[in-house]
Design a binder for these strands. Structure first.
Lengths: 199, 199
DNA sequence: ATCCTTTCTTAACTTAAGTTAACGAGTTTA
DNA sequence: TAAACTCGTTAACTTAAGTTAAGAAAGGAT
């Protein structure tokens, strides 16, 4: 599927409209700042140790965060359409603890937070927008954390199937397993167990 | 230990100073809004299903969030001195999914977010303050989530001892165990295992 | 001081996840 | 086409957590 520039603009504006009402001028300021970029599957967007001020808004495709522990990739998050990854480094300029790569060919908005201060002074509503988005993301991330904590791997898997059935389809089992906090072998066993239970 | 009102004001202002520089007037506006309250150990601040717009800033003591799953309490967070709990309901007025109680006699600032809009219009820097605090909390909570995910219960425990040694002292084992995602029996066994390993 | 409740520990047994290794289906590459 | 690689599955064995039950230790209350 191809995305025209107009469509991409519209996806972004629809997302922002959930938080604040923007004037035409304000919308244009944001669209001017938004840099749309395409990445091939497998592209590494961010490496451990790297400093980057970029945040990513996914228009199409899927990106993934993972830590490299010894030689093992520990996947902690997937971001798909209309989801936002705002790595800590974007705020405080610390080196990244994790990697980010593209699991699919992806179209992203890469937002650099360098110029924000002048912009906020000129358009205070953008500061409000950022506050609301941040509060919302924080709240969602807390709830996700809570759900993870109070669940067993099996409950996490069932929950994933319910809440984000798309992920189970588009993401390889071994990445899903890592995301659920188990090995691919365990996930495979679990699936067999669940089929048996269901019957 | 007793806290005077002046000391409590100072703790709050010191915390805020990490984010923005406030004029005397702005400081006073905030101090006028800040409601200091004392709670006895065991007090339930928030119940599942309850709607509340309150956020809590801990001046002294310790509060805890937990879900009630069947009859079992699943502890997801502890907040101690200078930490902030901002439940999702404070933002979007949804009923709470979890309980909050005091593990110790505690002095908290209870901040109600109702009046914020007028205030932000009058003092834009407060909006900036909220944005920065929210971004910081979000970032910290993401990192905590990641660390939880990529660790085994044993690593989580060792990490807790290192990062927040105070918690291991002041919080009952069975709450700690729940927080680590295991049973009190498992934590007890684990501790024995670790002592043996060390020797 | 004694009782009672809360908290922590231990033990025996069950369940599920980790580990290592191997195999097969499906892709990609040479 | 054949070889190499990726991905998912299975199996045997090990390790650690869950479960149930019982008792010991520590704190509070009367």
């Amino acid at each position: 599927m191809q995305l025209t520039n107009d469509k991409m603009d519209q996806i972004l504006l629809n997302f922002l409209a959930k938080y604040v009402i923007l004037s035409e001028e304000e919308q244009n300021v944001i669209l001017d700042l938004a840099i749309f970029k395409s990445f091939k599957k497998g592209t590494i967007l961010l490496k451990e140790g790297q400093r980057s001020k970029d945040a990513y808004f996914v228009l199409q495709g899927c990106i993934r965060c993972y830590y490299l522990v010894d030689t093992e990739e520990k996947t902690t998050a997937f971001y798909t359409e209309t989801e936002t990854l705002n790595p800590p480094g974007a705020l405080n300029n610390t080196p990244s603890e994790y990697y980010v790569d593209c699991l699919e060919n992806s179209i992203l908005i890469v937002a650099n937070s360098e110029t924000d201060e002048e912009l906020f002074a000129k358009y205070p509503i953008l500061e409000k927008l950022c506050r609301l988005v941040s509060e919302d993301l924080h709240s969602k991330s807390q709830i996700a954390f809570d759900n993870f904590k109070i669940s067993t791997p099996e409950q996490r898997y069932l929950n994933l199937l319910e809440i984000r059935p798309d992920l189970a389809q588009r993401i390889p089992q071994y990445h899903l397993a890592s995301y659920l906090g188990i090995t691919p072998q365990s996930l495979s066993r679990m699936r067999k167990r669940l089929v048996k239970k269901a019957s």
